[in-house]
Design a protein around this nucleic acid. Structure first.
Length: 823
RNA sequence: GGGGAAGUGGCGGAACGGUAGACGCAGCCGCCUCAAAAGCGGCCGAGGAAACUUGUGAGGGUUCGAAUCCCUCCUUCCCUACCA
């Protein structure tokens, strides 16, 4: 009995060889470049088959592209700063650096175990000074241009743990660790001015043709550009105005109150003109609302408010309306104040009903037959009424006219408001990049000079969850002012880890550079990322931040080409087990280690690519992967007869005269064409390609029974390792070697689909009568319409149908079908 | 409330206006075997003995022809959410 396919020996053997031979290193040798990248992973725990799906997919694309003659850059690294390491430190007293290094080692081992073809010579880990010094360098460049700045902002603060919490660490308004109510505190925070790029981030989306439409839509919504009018309400009895923003200025005559955020600066200034008890009530309400986390505050459906005791004058209608402090107006969107129009805004309607404020209809539907829903505001455009000189105008006309009038009176202007806010990048945390700023009593805020970078993250900080560890390290805090040399204090906040991941794709290009984060020449050579792969959960955060950074780099001429980093984007789907997301708490995690040990890596990779199209959610089943193990065994047996016979095929297309040979030859090229088509179309539906490989192996199995010695069989056997190489790299390499080849199968050219091999001698021509199939005729592929019609008439079933009426029309699709229209 | 994606056999899926269900999983039958496993061959949407009829969430439309394009509705999943 011949030797069976033994993945336990074969797979590790080839991984070592590839590593030793640097098989997957990008060469920069003049071939066209291709940069394929999976999103920078966080090195957490063990990999499961969900991760494996992502890596199998990216690796298949990289391998296919390399075999098509491209110089492929496919790097890997680790997003190594962040909370899990710090939490491990807090909970178990371990050193975050040691914990992270250990995790990286394990994850590297597992990624290598998968046989992925990364260029490890370019590996990065963001927690090392060689990387994060460039974070600091980039931060300083942003700072110099006014794009990084510090201001007071409300953050989640746990009074018990004395620390700031991320939004996701606030559960039902309480601290996830100690369960104390979280407060919102105004703290001085660092921001990046992404809003300065809002218009460009939005406009450029139209150019990103290789991005999924839904991702672009989500980014558009996130940026949330609204065109409207900003105009001023005068406060009655006070020489002050409250600006409001609205997209529906046409409803201005329907404003029956003015709603302002409790944090609005006007609240304090009303003290002099309102009764003291009203002022106290407003202050109490503001404190109550402000103490709540944004999460809790916005998830409250009930609208609440307090009358301030003051009134404002509507500049258009002249109406005097009460000013309310409310919980549903956000302080940091628009102007923090809105005109309340119960008749034409659903939120205002709910608020007005609760506080018994009047509703005045000023827009009526143009076609009145639409059924009105009781209690609902009429929010559509219509025709104006009870709006003074604007009566009779359409909403669109009124918007123009009112904006013009306000502008002329100097009381308002057409303006644009965006939903996106500046990016809060400072964290009162330890395990991150120190922000390179020094505070000096004499000089103020002083940036650390480039030649003093990196500001090292000091070891041995008190990481115990009791507030900012760096702030409690005297040795870190105390320094000298870079400007005047006097004693000064360091900034003790660290950066959000999204900072690192906003530019890492450039560091791969010059990974060991010690004079710049990357070389412009390298960026010119490799950017853009041709294919970016990652989960849809990063749609608005990472992908927006990275685009913002890249625009900044482009504006500074640090990169050439266009101002978008990612040419094409692909969101891979998840892998479920028992129809549920894999998680430790559910106990349904299918690990990479166990799966590789049990079934082999190649079978795992094949199954993950085969079970669904890559963008779909897949379901893990043990039966499913068993099918791929069977497939690989069949592949092995098909090739086995030619082991050690290097001259059985020279790889050139053999003549195929017999029908069986032609079928086999065709199966080879159908599979090759599928792989190529899926790659070129960027659908990457390799599940369809692998199905064609199944058919090829079925054909080979049949051939082995009948005529194992034919030149076409030998050709197909030699083609098979090349065809499966992108998907099952280990077995492909082993077979290739056993078939007598010395150079890696992964450095071979992929099989170019050949028209002669794809051609068939005979096709089945479908004959329809009035669209219903009545016959299938075996004919030559190039049969003419006339001849097809003649043959169709000879067919009894067709003839019977034709007799039922008169032939009106013939539709002939060459090589496919003939449709006869009879009536 | 807003946005997006998707509904095809027992299951995963294939079919980018032209033969619906490729390929695989599960199941059934056979060969091989003392037997089992593995392997190999065959069957496998529904109704029907067959001819044939019917069938891609529901309904309508466009077309010689629709799973595919358009409209209405239903269902599921994902994202987002008091954004004025």
């Amino acid at each position: 009995m011949a030797e069976a396919y033994d993945f336990r020996n074969i797979e590790p053997k080839w991984r070592e060889r590839w590593e030793f031979d640097a098989t997957y290193r990008a060469r920069s040798d003049g071939r066209p470049k291709y940069y394929v990248l999976e999103m920078l992973p966080y090195p957490s725990g063990d990999l499961h088959v969900g991760h494996a799906k992502n890596y199998s997919f990216g690796d298949a694309i990289a391998r296919m592209t390399r075999m098509r003659g491209y110089d492929v850059l496919h790097p890997m690294g680790f997003d190594a700063f962040g909370l899990p390491a710090e939490n491990a430190a807090i909970d178990r007293g371990v050193d975050p650096a040691a914990w992270t290094v250990e995790n990286i080692a394990n994850m590297q081992r597992q990624i290598r175990l998968m046989g992925t073809g990364y260029d490890w010579s370019r590996e990065i880990a963001t927690c090392f000074p060689e990387y994060y010094r460039w974070n600091q360098w980039l931060f300083l460049r942003l700072y110099e241009r006014g794009l990084a700045y510090k201001r007071e902002a409300p953050v989640n603060w746990c009074p018990h743990d004395k620390t700031v919490l991320a939004n996701e660490q606030v559960i039902d308004g309480r601290c996830w660790r100690c369960n104390h109510l979280v407060e919102r505190r105004n703290l001085s925070q660092w921001f990046l001015k992404i809003t300065a790029y809002a218009d460009r981030l939005l406009a450029n989306l139209d150019k990103l043709e290789g991005w999924p439409e839904r991702t672009k839509t989500m980014q558009r919504n996130w940026i949330g550009r609204s065109e409207g009018v900003r105009f001023d309400f005068a406060v009655d009895g006070l020489d002050e105005t409250v600006p409001v923003f609205t997209t529906r200025i046409d409803t201005a005559f329907g404003a029956t109150f003015l709603a302002i955020a409790p944090e609005h600066p006007m609240v304090a200034r009303l003290r002099s003109i309102v009764p003291p008890e009203r002022f106290d009530a407003v202050t109490a309400f503001a404190e109550r609302v402000a103490g709540k986390s944004e999460l809790e505050r916005t998830s409250l459906l009930e609208k609440e408010g307090v009358f301030t005791g003051a009134y404002a004058i509507n500049p258009l209608s002249g109406a005097r309306v009460p000013i309310y402090a409310t919980n549903y107006v956000l302080a940091d969107y628009g102007t923090g104040a809105v005109m309340g129009v119960p008749a034409h805004d659903q939120r205002d309607a709910e608020f007005a009903r609760k506080y018994e404020l009047p509703s005045v209809t000023v827009v009526v539907p143009v076609d009145d037959d639409r059924a009105r829903i009781e209690g609902a505001a009429f929010v559509d455009d219509g025709r104006l009424t009870d709006s003074g000189k604007y009566d009779g105008m359409t909403s669109a006309q009124a918007r123009v006219a009112m904006a013009a009038d306000l502008a002329q009176r100097g009381l308002g202007e057409v303006t644009v408001t965006t939903r996106i806010r500046d990016w809060l990048v400072s964290r009162q945390r330890y395990w991150g990049t120190p922000i390179p700023i020094v505070y000096c009593d004499g000089c103020g805020e002083v940036p650390v000079p480039d030649d003093q970078l990196p500001v090292l993250l000091p070891p041995g900080a008190p990481v115990d969850g009791e507030g900012s560890p760096l702030a409690r390290m005297e040795s870190f805090v105390n320094t000298t002012c870079p400007r005047c040399g006097k004693p000064a204090r360091r900034e003790t906040d660290t950066m959000d880890t999204f900072f690192e991941s906003s530019w890492y794709y450039l560091r791969y290009l010059s990974p060991h550079d010690s004079v710049a984060p990357w070389e412009r020449a390298d960026a010119n050579a490799w950017m853009n990322v041709d294919q970016y792969i990652g989960g849809a959960e990063h749609t608005v955060l990472h992908l927006l931040y990275a685009r913002f950074f890249y625009m900044f780099f482009h504006d500074n001429r640090w990169v050439g080409g266009n101002d978008e980093p990612f040419e094409r984007l692909f969101h891979q789907g998840m892998v479920l087990k028992d129809s549920e997301k894999m998680s430790k708490s559910r106990g349904n995690v299918v690990g990479v280690d166990e799966t590789a040990e049990r079934y082999g890596v190649d079978a795992m990779r094949l199954f993950l690519l085969y079970v669904t199209p890559p963008e779909d959610t897949a379901e893990w089943t043990d039966e499913g992967i068993s099918g791929r193990v069977r497939f690989l065994n069949r592949v092995w047996r098909a090739c086995e007869p030619l082991f050690g016979k290097p001259y059985a095929s020279d790889g050139r297309l053999p003549a195929a005269d017999e029908a069986d040979d032609r079928t086999l030859l065709r199966a080879v090229h159908v599979a090759a064409k599928s792989a190529l088509d899926e790659t070129l179309s960027r659908r990457f539906h390799f599940n369809a390609t692998i199905a064609k490989l199944d058919e090829l192996v079925n054909a080979l199995t049949a051939a082995a029974r009948d005529r194992s010695g034919s030149p076409v069989t030998a050709y197909a056997v030699h083609a098979l390792p090349i065809l499966i190489a992108p998907f099952a790299p280990h077995i492909a390499e082993e077979l290739w070697e056993r078939l007598g080849h010395a150079v890696s199968v992964h450095l071979q050219r992929f099989i170019e689909p050949d028209e002669r091999a794809l051609a068939v001698a005979e096709i089945e021509l479908v004959v329809q009568v009035n669209g219903k199939i009545r016959a299938r005729l075996a004919v030559a592929p190039d049969i003419s319409a006339e001849r097809a019609y003649e043959l169709a008439q000879e067919n009894p079933a067709v003839r019977a149908q034709l007799e039922s009426g008169e032939l009106r029309k013939q539709i002939f699709v060459p090589g496919k079908l003939l449709n006869l229209v009879v009536s």
